[in-house]
């Protein structure tokens, strides 16, 4: 398997942060909400406010892993005419804006990529400066075509594990992933929750035992305190709905961006104190 031989920008970033004594803040926003230009503004705002890795979502008509907030944004983005290729523009903007410091991963359901052409998508994503792709409905068992293309273009392959994953599947997924393994904190879809599932810590430990070098946790994190709590044991804290939510609604765009920056900064403070005495109190 080529996992060991292909360098991963995302893994390198996580290692650098680990050396600084903190986990990464991984922020998700969909391309095209409320339109492509403003989604570029939103992502760069998020970068300036302190995310370490970005995930850019491709809106899809049938997002079965997403809760109401991300569904609403995706539906609006599609309604506004967002195309799959627009995600490459956002990836490019992140690469330029951060001088390559912030890895940009695409998060996409499989069919839009399949239709684009798996090899062509990998080629174009790599050319745009993208780090790789997270695949919520593609498991390693079905991913031969994507895996070959990702290896050929030096892209990260981020697969998910869940509290229901068996030890055998954790091994398979850890083995197939590059960049990090995405651990779903709870059984469910995306969306803010009052508490992050207590199964997350166990799942991260089990995934590490199964051979994963880096494990980030997503689903349900929305506050700085939750980020600090999850950041104690995870290499990265993934936040989606709590960020997307700041952009929904009718407030003036500048206010929505301010809100996004404020929530991002709060989460960034959370991960910064995750491994200090204050963070664990």
């Amino acid at each position: 398997m080529s996992t060991a031989t292909t360098a991963s920008a995302t893994a390198a970033r996580l290692d650098a942060l680990r050396a600084e004594g903190r986990p990464a803040l991984v922020g998700y926003l969909p391309v095209g909400y409320p339109d492509v230009d403003r989604s570029v503004q939103a992502v760069t705002t998020m970068v300036d406010a302190g995310v370490d890795v970005v995930e850019i979502g491709v809106p899809y008509t049938d997002p079965v892993m997403d809760g109401p907030v991300i569904q609403e944004a995706a539906e609006a983005a599609l309604h506004g005419g967002t195309r799959v290729r627009d995600v490459l523009r956002v990836v490019e903007a992140v690469a330029q804006h951060s001088g390559g410091r912030v890895p940009a991963l695409v998060m996409s359901y499989y069919n839009p990529v399949l239709r684009y052409g798996v090899e062509a998508f990998a080629r174009d994503l790599s050319a745009a400066g993208g780090a790789g792709m997270i695949t919520p409905d593609l498991i390693p068992d079905e991913a031969d075509e994507w895996s070959t293309a990702a290896d050929a273009h030096g892209l990260d392959k981020v697969y998910l594990v869940a509290p229901s994953s068996t030890p055998e599947r954790l091994r398979l997924t850890a083995q197939a992933s590059r960049g990090f393994v995405y651990a779903a904190s709870t059984m469910g879809v995306t969306g803010a929750r009052d508490a992050v599932g207590d199964r997350a810590e166990r799942l991260v430990a089990d995934t590490r035992s199964a051979g994963a070098a880096h494990v980030c946790v997503g689903l349900g994190v929305s506050t700085g305190d939750q980020a600090a709590q999850v950041g104690r044991y995870a290499d990265g804290v993934i936040v989606g709905s709590a960020l997307v939510r700041t952009l929904l609604g009718d407030a003036p765009w500048s206010e929505r961006l301010d809100d996004l920056g404020r929530v991002t900064a709060e989460l960034a403070t959370g991960v910064a104190r995750a491994r200090t005495a204050e963070g664990t109190s």
Partner: peptide
Amino acid sequence: GGRYVPEALIAALD
């Protein structure tokens, strides 16, 4: 055919 679903469902399908 196949299984293009979230990993969370694989244990139940098995």
